[in-house]
Computed example of a mutant assay.
Amino acid sequence: MYTGDWEEARQEGKDEKKWLLVNIQNEKVFDCQVLNRDIWKNESIIETVKENFLFLQYSKDDPRAETYCNYYFQNAQIEDEYPHVAVVDPRTGEQVKLWSKKVPQQAEFLMQLHEFLDRYSLETSARNPVAKRRSEAKKEKPVEQLTEDEQIERAMQASLGGRKESIKVPNEDPDDLTKSIPDLRNSSADDKDMTDVSEEETSSSSQTSPFASIPSDQPHKEPEMSSSVTRIQLRHPAGRIVRRFAIADPVQRIYEYLKAEPIEGKEGADFELRSLGKDLIDSRDSTIEEAGLKNASVMVEFVDT
Score class of each variant (00 low, 15 high):
Y2T: 06
G4Y: 09
W6A: 03
E7K: 14
E8M: 09
A9I: 09
Q11I: 11
E12S: 09
E12H: 08
E12K: 14
D15W: 00
K17T: 13
W19P: 08
L35Q: 13
N36E: 15
I45G: 04
I46E: 14
T48M: 12
T48D: 13
T48S: 14
V49K: 07
N52P: 11
Q57V: 11
Y58G: 02
Y58S: 05
E66N: 07
T67D: 12
Y68W: 11
Y68Q: 05
C69W: 03
N70M: 06
Y72F: 15
Q74G: 11
A76N: 10
E79F: 01
V85K: 00
A86Y: 02
V87D: 00
V87Y: 03
T92H: 04
S100D: 06
S100T: 10
K102Q: 15
Q106P: 04
E108P: 01
L110M: 08
L122V: 10
E123G: 03
T124N: 13
P129E: 06
V130A: 11
K132P: 01
K141D: 06
T147Y: 05
E150Y: 07
E150L: 07
K164E: 13
E165T: 15
N171E: 13
P174S: 12
L177E: 12
S180Q: 09
I181Q: 12
D183W: 07
L184V: 02
N186W: 10
D193I: 03
T195Y: 00
S198F: 02
E199R: 06
E200T: 13
Q207W: 04
S209M: 03
P210M: 02
Q218S: 14
Q218T: 14
K221F: 10
E222I: 14
P223A: 01
S226P: 04
V229I: 10
T230C: 11
L234M: 11
R240H: 07
F245A: 03
P250H: 04
V251T: 12
R253T: 12
L258T: 02
K259S: 03
I263A: 01
F271H: 01
D282T: 08
S286I: 00
T287M: 07
N295L: 01
V300K: 00
F302I: 08
V303F: 04
T305E: 14
